[in-house]
Computed example of a mutant assay.
Amino acid sequence: MVEKKKDFPEESDLVLCTVTKIYPHCVFANLDEFDRKQGMIHISEISPGRIRNIHDYVKIGKKIICKVLSINMEKGHIDLSLRRVSEGQKREKAELIKRQQKAEKIIEFVAGKLKTDKQKLQDDLVSKLGDEYPSLHDAFEEFIVDESVLSKLGLPKAFYDNLAEVIRQRIKPPEVEIDGEIKLKSNAPAGVNVVKKILCDAEKLDESLTIRYNGGGSYSINVVYDNYKDAEKILKKATDLMEGEAKKNECDYSFRRIEKKKKAAA
């Protein structure tokens, strides 16, 4: 269950909905993340092209992800679109909801152990965290690598101890992924074997490192680790080895790095 918000969504937000009513030219759906909010999807916003039978696209009780087109707060009207949500956006929203539910389950479990009200615990924690984190799951994820995220909040000891224990059990550390491009060529008679040995020796340095052939003397190098500092050390060790061996064997060598942070697994 997703904790319901009492306000309205914003225009262009993606929202999880449950279909409640189907008419020939429109569909009504409850907004699952918002308290007592309902939206309407006109038939033109169900799917591109002509729709012969609206029931081919939606059914009562079906969970759908929609885009908010417009809001009239005075009348409480919310216009939604189903067709303007891409498959990628659907997957991303579904993942966010899954993460949110996981964080709320953690609070619920801790509340059960302490025999206290889950909603009060959650509201107090959200209030103390403020606007620093988009969601509870983001805060819990950060706690894995920096315990001061929660320890500085002044939470009651029993709550903090139990919460910290459950977070460590249920949430994996965020991963850092560093991608790079290597260009490595040798004009020597046995150049193919020279290049292959250099790359293999580099890849053997750490199990978190992988090297793949792109074509035309270009290779991708990838390091996945739980923090930037160590990921960069692994990458530097590998690139230093390759650069040194390339010079020793008179190979052409260059390297370009690209970084990005991956979200923790839910």
Rank of each mutant, 00 (worst) to 15 (best):
K6S: 12
D7S: 12
P9F: 07
D13R: 01
T18V: 03
V19L: 06
P24Q: 12
H25N: 14
A29F: 00
E33F: 07
F34I: 02
G39E: 10
H42W: 14
I43S: 06
S44H: 03
I46L: 12
V58A: 11
I65C: 00
L69K: 12
E74D: 13
H77S: 12
H77A: 05
I78W: 08
L80K: 11
R83S: 13
Q89E: 15
Q89N: 05
K90H: 04
R91S: 07
E92F: 10
E95I: 00
Q100F: 05
A103C: 00
F109M: 11
A111I: 07
A111R: 02
A111P: 06
D117F: 02
Q119M: 14
K120V: 15
L121W: 04
L125R: 06
H137A: 01
D138L: 06
V145E: 14
L150T: 01
L150Q: 09
K152Q: 13
G154K: 01
F159M: 09
F159G: 01
Y160D: 01
D161W: 11
D161S: 13
V166S: 12
I167E: 09
I167R: 02
Q169G: 02
I171N: 12
P174H: 03
P174W: 04
V176F: 05
I178W: 14
D179N: 15
D179P: 00
G180R: 09
I182C: 04
I182N: 05
K185A: 05
N187P: 01
A190Y: 14
I198P: 02
L199D: 11
K204R: 10
Y213C: 07
N214K: 15
G215Q: 09
Y219H: 06
N222W: 05
D226Y: 04
N227C: 08
E232L: 04
K236N: 13
A238S: 08
L241A: 05
M242W: 04
A246Y: 11
E250P: 04
E250L: 09
C251L: 08
K262W: 03
